[in-house]
Amino acid sequence: MYNAEVLIYPSNSFPMGKSFNDWCILWWKWLLTIEKSNNPAYDMTGKKAYINQSDPDVFFLCQTFEKSRIFPHRRIEILHKKKIFLPILNWISFRDEENQSEETLKSEAADKMNKIGMLEFYVNGKPVRDRLPEFRVRTPLFEVNLPNDNILGVKQGLTTVVSDGYWLFLESNLNKINISSLGSCSSGITEIGVNYQIIFTD
């Protein structure tokens, strides 16, 4: 999908040789292994966006958290060669009881994403409207090693999770772009939004 400022990869493509499912799992492992006190999801300015960004080709961006009533304005600088992977709206279900089945976790996550009230994405103030619902990605179950003081608020250690949501993988040839997204689930009751000013450097 092309915009005047960015290229948005199709959800069935394999950016950098990985599927969107693969990127979703890597993204969650990035976010969930950062303690709440330093987590980029709770950052208003973008200063914490660089924590644990280890991929040489892709930079992960995140939304806020479900109960936030503030839409952050974050400013970040990244290398011009890097592509960007981020959610518009997503959900993760985690196994907090040993007898929770795979189908239970997937059903819980799907139920959240089946009730979309709003799904919007903007580049430099211009809406990207084409086929956004097609960017829904549902991962298989995977494991993540949660730190103490994790953003899920559960005990430290290895846990099983599954994700459902809407994701974009994009790249830009410009020196600067502004992107923003807005999504709501639970029949529109919960709204999550974020704004990024992205400066590309050499």
Rank of each mutant, 00 (worst) to 15 (best):
K115W: 11
P140S: 11
K106H: 09
N99W: 14
M118W: 05
S163D: 12
L119G: 09
I116W: 08
G165L: 10
C62P: 07
D111W: 09
V58C: 12
I88C: 00
K81V: 13
P56E: 14
L170G: 07
E102M: 00
D96W: 13
E66G: 04
N39H: 05
E134Q: 10
F121I: 05
K112D: 11
T139G: 01
N173A: 02
E143G: 01
L79F: 14
K47F: 10
F121H: 03
N124L: 07
K82I: 12
P133F: 01
N38E: 10
L32W: 04
L170M: 13
S163Y: 06
I34H: 00
R138C: 06
S101E: 08
I116H: 02
V137C: 05
Q63M: 11
A41R: 04
L32M: 10
I116A: 07
V123S: 06
L31E: 08
T160W: 00
N38L: 07
P147S: 09
T159G: 08
L141F: 05
K83T: 13
I151W: 09
F59E: 12
N38I: 00
R138S: 06
N175M: 00
V58K: 12
S172L: 01
I34S: 02
P56W: 08
I92T: 10
F169D: 08
L79Y: 14
P147F: 06
V137W: 01
T159I: 11
Y122V: 00
P40Q: 01
Y122I: 06
E66R: 09
W30L: 06
M113I: 14
